[in-house]
Design a protein around this nucleic acid. Sequence first.
DNA 1: CTGGAGTATTTCTATTAGAAACACACGCAG
DNA 2: CTGCGTGTGTTTCTAATAGAAATACTCCAG
Lengths: 229, 229
Amino acid sequence: MAPHSRDEAAAPGPDPDDPRLPATSWAVLGMLAFEQELSGYDIKKWADWSLKLFYWSPSFSQIYGELKRLERHGYVTSRTVMQDDVRGKRVYAITPTGREAVRTWARTAPVETPVLKHGVLLRVWLGHLTDPTRLREIVAEHRDNSERRRAEAAVDTQAAHNETAWAYPEIALKWAERYHAAERDLADQMLRDLDDLQASGRATAPMPLAAGSASAAGAGARVAGDEEG
Amino acid sequence: MAPHSRDEAAAPGPDPDDPRLPATSWAVLGMLAFEQELSGYDIKKWADWSLKLFYWSPSFSQIYGELKRLERHGYVTSRTVMQDDVRGKRVYAITPTGREAVRTWARTAPVETPVLKHGVLLRVWLGHLTDPTRLREIVAEHRDNSERRRAEAAVDTQAAHNETAWAYPEIALKWAERYHAAERDLADQMLRDLDDLQASGRATAPMPLAAGSASAAGAGARVAGDEEG
DNA sequence: CTGGAGTATTTCTATTAGAAACACACGCAG
DNA sequence: CTGCGTGTGTTTCTAATAGAAATACTCCAG
C-alpha cells in the first residue's frame, strides 16, 4: 500500500495547513463563507442558479459527501432544524478554522487551466462525418443556447447589483454575461467559416475513403509511420 | 439488480444501433476515423496536441480502456506491430461498422451544454476572501495563460491550413484561437472591473463578520430563512 | 555505464456526473 | 378523500474521468 496515502480521517481535529482538498470542496466551503447556514439542498440550488454559469454545478451526492468531509476537518459544523414536527433538515455553518482554510486556499492555490469540454466543437472537428446542413443546425442550436445563457447571466447580474455586499459575485456574473455573449458570437463566426468552406467546394470529401490518403493524418499522427516487423 | 443495466459485454458482435457510449469513446473513435492506424499512445499525443484546446484531453488509462471497449463493440480492430525485435505496440483501425456508428453519433447526438469549470472565476466570485492585490495577480496570470493558448492555437491553425483535407479541424482550431483571445480580453475587462471596485471603495469589506448581515446571502440563499423549530 | 528523455501500456485511487430510490408535505383535480 | 404531481431533503449506487505511478524497454549524451 502507499506510504499513508493522503489520509484525512486520521485526527479528529482540523489539519495544520490546508489539506489538499479538491476544488469542489472549496466551492462548497466558499458558499458557506457568505455567512449563512445552508443545507445541502440549498447549496445545490444556489449552485444551479448562479455558479453553473462559470463553474459546473456539483451533484447532490458530491455536495453531501463534501459537507461530511468538511465537518470531519472541522471546517463546518452542522445542526438539525425542524421545519414541521417530524421533518428536519441538517444545516451547515462555516467555522473560524474553515474560514481561515478557504482564505488560504483562495490566496495560495495555483492558477489552473479552466476545464473546457466542448462537445459541439468536437463535432465540428469531425465535420467530415456529418452532412453540412446538419452540422450547421448543430452550431446554430449552440449559438441559441449561448444567447439564452447570456440572458440568464444578465438577469443574475442585475439581481447581484441590487444587493450590497455582492460586489465580487457581480463581477463574476458580468464576466459570465460577456463570456456567453462571446460564445454566441464565436458560433456565428464559425457558421460563416462553415459556409465559406461549402462555397469553396472543399467540403464533405476531405478524406477519400480509398486511394492515396497516405499522408492523411498529417502532423499529429505521423508517429505511426515507421513501423512494420 | 437493475433490469439489465446497459450491458455491453453481452453479445460479441457489434450492437444494432449506437449503444450509449460516453463522449470520450466517440472522441477516440473519431480520431481513428481520420484513416490511420493509431496506438493508444499516438491518440494521447494527438489529443494533447490539438484536441485539448477545446476538448479536455483524456488520460492514458481512459484511452486504453476505451479502445478495448470499442474493440468489444466491433468498432475497431487491432494488430500488433513490431518496432524492434522484442518491443511491439498495438495499433487500432476503425471498421466500417465503427465508421457508421460514429457518423450516426455525429448526426444525431443532442447538442449538449459545454462543460466549463473555471477555477479562476470561482476565486473571483469568492473575491472577498482574498486581498485585492493577490486577486489581481491571479487574474493577470490567467490572462497571460490565455494568450499563450491563443498563440498555440494560431500555430496549429496554420499547420492545419497547409494540409489538404484538414478543412474541419482548421475551422475548429480557428474557433479555438478566437476563443482563447476572447478569454484573454475577458480577463482584461475583469481586471478593469476589479480596479473600479477598488476605486469605489466597496472592496474587501463586503461581508461584515459580525453585525447586521441578516439579508447577506441574498436571493439564492433566502431558502434557509424560514425555519427554526 | 549511468541517467534522462521518449515510447508504450497497465494499474490504482480519488473525483465527478448522473440517475434513482426514498421519504414526506402540500395543493389540486377527479 | 384519494391519488398525482411538484417541491424539499438526503442517501445510495454506478459509471466516467483525472491523475499519478509502476513497469519496461530504447536510444542518446556525458
